[in-house]
Amino acid sequence: MRLLVLLWSLGPLLWQLRTSLLRPEALVAPLLEGSPWTLANYQLVLSGDPPFWRYLSNSALVGLVTTGLTLLLAVPCAYGLQKQRGPLRWGVGLGLVAAAMFPTVLLFLALLEIARSFGLANDLLALSLPYTALSLPLAVLLLRAAFADLPVELEDAARLEGLDLGQRLRHVLLPLLGPALASTGILVFLASWNEYAIALTWISRNDLLTLPIAIARIGGSSVFTIPYGAFAAATVLGSLPLLLLVLLAQRAIVSGLTRGAVKG
């Protein structure tokens, strides 16, 4: 059973790995025929113009800025929301759930207009603004759930000791929220790393492309001409950071998703 599950989830990925290590002529050879491995595809991708690591660093930059900005805005919002009572709490909560479910591709046209009129197109840092907004609903919901899980008495005790709001957040609440911050941050980073529609329309300069767009370009231009090995190599390189992230933070991701699920 376990093997079957692994084959289902990993099979297509392993095939990419294999493809990335084959010479072009071996790709069109009959299935599973032995042929020498090669790193030529990786060399090709890494020596392209711009080199592939450029896309990696673009995506990493946008991802990190987005994650930081999202947490910066989501933490106070989640705290404030958790303290609300009555229709406002209910209304904002429902609005956040609706926004979290909203198919973001429907937003790209208006966002593109905004980007053009403010001169934000082809600006990686500006790209993290819509990304932050798209991640905020889920982040706020997750963090609000985390705040709700903290015993009220902890904050009461801190208030009695004379800690103001900033001190309470810094010394008491945020340290206890560590795991929730980590899992929320990872989910935000993943979403930003993988976003397509907005990056596709905002970024046109070749050296500023984010990873999904760059890989799609490499692959899209080559589906019929088959330098497929290069595309596969790009896929593997682009997936490695995610693989590491998922393996290292599996527990955090699962618990983050779980909370989001239950509280949402």
């Binding site: 008495e153 902890l154 009461d156 801190a158 009695l160 000791e161 004379g162 010394h171 008491v172 340290p175």
Partner: peptide, 26 residues
């Protein structure tokens, strides 16, 4: 000063840290 039913000790701080926090911020 208040002693809570659950004691409301800061779980991430040592005994000493729990005692020091209030004094520190003041």
């Amino acid at each position: 000063a208040m002693v809570f039913q659950s004691y409301a000790l800061y779980p991430h701080l040592s005994v000493e840290g729990n005692l020091a926090l209030g004094l520190k911020v003041r």
